[in-house]
Design a protein around this nucleic acid. Structure first.
Lengths: 204, 204
DNA sequence: ACCTGAACACCGTTCAAGT
DNA sequence: ACCTGAACACCGTTCAAGT
């Protein structure tokens, strides 16, 4: 699996999570995959939380921020949020780690600062920018966590929802297929971005 | 701590989480608090995940859905989301459990069905309702998770953000106080609701 | 129906020690 | 600087057994 280093461990951890979920990411297992003793990882990371911080940092590093332009702020905001989304989409099971780690890495701060800047240029106060800025980024993460069909047991769940009483839950039953599998996830994400950007615009 | 039952265990678990966070909720610890063997809990819950499902269910049960009226759909939608928010706010550290459990309890289905119904009455298709419905509920949960200052180490973090380079992160530094502590959380939540409801309205 | 005892496999982490 | 060995405290969970 290659040499042991901060960065290779993070890569390995993300790969592990992609395959088997975040709860499968374990110091001991990672160490085993690298043919090394669990304690070896403690030289590279203070503790497991520091490793999780490292994963979140990597996600922020992967964000390809758009170049700043003369476009209206909401166009740039959408592009920025889309860039964040693009970085998260390949790794849905670690996406949630960013929720509480916006300020814990240089890369996270860069992304956050960009969003705050765009909101300020839209006329929002420092307080409003702070509230909406972090929230918008978190809401992007949630877009991934909440993608229909991403929760476990698709076939099982599908059957469950369809079997529900159509009298008690008429609309859930009516939308059962769309709730359990995302037919067009690009459209889902695109609309999600629209919702958020339209939402902020409506407040200014 | 009272008698042992499904419902009392859930109550105890929530209390534990409120005090020390979700990661402090442990089968063994709960059992110890009830003066009982860890395995006793396994009679009431199949496994720990079932206990977490029970916690999420309780949160949905606590939702006081508004009576349906002749008000426009977006007014009712806002009231419904606000009701969900109100149920979650007292228990921020377990709020995240609802994210993946909208369909796992009767109470969750009732709340979800209401939201879907309102979206259908607004003219959205079954597919759009499915996508936005679950997302809106999840976005409410995130509003809580992302409340400025809720992440750990307020004083420490405050200092950290203020000490950042104002050249690299001008807007983060400018908003440092508002990012680390929520001066007016009612206003924060109210604006968050506005953002989401305005967002959906913008899409119809 | 409801709980216990003993045991298992697995965690994260510390500390002293090796090279 | 980088890793190991042994140990500790803590998990969730199974299984057979008790009342």
């Amino acid at each position: 699996v290659g040499k042991l280093s901060r960065s290779s461990i993070v890569t390995g951890a993300i790969a592990q999570a992609d395959l088997e979920g975040l709860e499968a990411v374990t110091i001991r297992r990672l160490a085993h995959d690298y043919g090394v003793t669990p304690m070896a990882l403690y030289w590279h990371f203070k503790d497991k939380d520091a490793l999780l911080d490292g994963i979140a940092e990597r996600l922020f590093v992967d964000v390809q921020l758009p170049v700043q332009t003369e476009d209206p702020w909401h166009t740039q905001l959408r592009a920025t949020l889309a860039a964040f989304l693009t970085a998260l989409r390949p790794h849905p099971s670690v996406a949630e780690l960013t929720l509480t780690r916006l300020f814990l890495s240089d890369a996270g701060l860069v992304v956050t600062d960009r969003v705050l800047g765009l909101l300020r240029s839209a006329g929002f106060s420092a307080e409003e920018a702070a509230q909406f800025g972090s929230y918008l980024l978190c809401a992007i993460t949630t877009l991934i966590t909440a993608e229909p069909g991403r929760a476990v047991g698709t076939e099982e769940k599908q059957a469950m929802l369809s079997a529900l009483s159509a009298e008690k839950y008429p609309h859930v039953v009516a939308s059962a297929p769309e709730l359990t599998a995302c037919a067009n996830s690009d459209a889902y994400y695109s609309r999600g971005l629209d919702l958020l950007v339209q939402g902020v615009r409506g407040l200014s």
